[in-house]
């Protein structure tokens, strides 16, 4: 074998090795940093704010008829944030599940600070479950290392939300995530493909910083009726009767059409459309 072939083989081998050998460890307590996700925090986004989201007409219609009274319904009170929305909302703890015979990492466990849902990211190559298996809030996640980046694929997620103002994400969505650690900073990029409520993948990134003193607080949610709703009451606003839809547009002086979202509104060129609409 000549030197060129040998170098070529070494190059191929090194690339293949990177697929399976983790170069970093993402375990640790991570404090959230409120940057681009600030709008999702606290009280959450405003009613009618669909800006920059590639939503379908079905998603828009659902959000237009949604009301926050939904959270008064007993069965909805203890819903945690699903895997794709949790990172928008709180600090978290990541720890390793170790096989004590081989000392390999079987999985990462990831706990969000809000309602402490525990998520497992399997690293042992196991397949995803049957289509008939139950869906969960955190879904079923498998991860592979691509160099220093952990790439995670999640299926079997319960129906959730793209935003907390009625924009839904369906149970048919697939979540792909990229975890990248740079020293004490963890960057988490997520891509949601939802054939029902998104026309294009929704890409978001979140930043976390190591926070050694971070402590999880137990959260035991129990639902209760405090307003006397009938057990079969389902809150919703009839089509065309949501008087709050234009508030966001009026408060920030944004053309109403520009608040309605859609794939075209996710691109920089849409600024020109907003200018035209504003004239």
């Amino acid at each position: 074998m000549d030197l060129k072939k040998l170098l070529f083989c070494l190059l191929i081998y090194s690339v293949m090795s990177c697929e399976v050998i983790a170069q970093v460890d993402i375990a640790g307590p991570w404090g959230t940093r409120r940057h681009e996700d600030d709008v999702e925090r606290g009280g959450g986004p405003e009613v009618g704010d669909y800006t920059g989201l590639p939503i379908t007409d079905a998603a828009r219609f659902q959000a237009d008829t949604w009301t926050a009274t939904k959270w008064s319904v007993l069965e909805h009170q203890c819903e945690p944030h699903p895997a794709d929305y949790g990172p928008s909302f709180s600090s978290m703890l990541i720890y390793r599940d170790i096989n004590e015979s081989t000392w390999q990492t079987n999985a990462y466990k990831l706990v969000m600070g809000w309602m402490t849902p525990i998520r497992t990211i399997w690293l042992d190559g196991r397949p995803h479950p049957s289509e008939y298996a139950p869906h969960t809030w955190q879904g079923f996640s498998t991860g592979v290392w691509h160099g220093d980046m952990l790439v995670v694929t999640t299926t079997h997620i319960k129906e959730g939300w793209t935003r907390r103002n009625g924009l839904q994400r369906s149970d048919q969505a697939t979540l792909t995530e990229y975890f990248m650690r740079n020293g004490n900073i963890l960057t988490w990029v997520s891509i949601i493909d939802d054939p029902i409520y998104l026309t294009e993948p929704l890409i978001r990134s979140r930043d976390f910083e190591i926070e050694l003193g971070y402590q999880m607080i137990p959260y035991d949610c129990s639902y209760r009726d405090e307003v006397g709703l009938a057990p079969d009451f389902v809150p919703h606003i009839l089509p065309g009767q949501n008087e709050y839809l234009t508030e966001f547009s009026e408060r920030y002086n944004i053309p109403f059409e520009a608040t309605r979202g859609g794939a075209e509104s996710t691109y920089p060129e849409y600024m020109n459309v907003i200018k035209e609409l504003s004239e």
């Binding site: 069965e75 203890c78 809030w137």
Partner: peptide, 26 residues
């Protein structure tokens, strides 16, 4: 349901996957 509105009583629908209260509520 069990903690965080999942699991607990499981529901087998007439067609489709295993579910719990959340899917029935929806």
């Amino acid at each position: 349901p069990n903690t965080n509105q999942q699991g607990g009583t499981y529901v087998i629908p007439g067609h489709g996957r295993i579910t719990d209260e959340y899917e029935v509520v929806n």
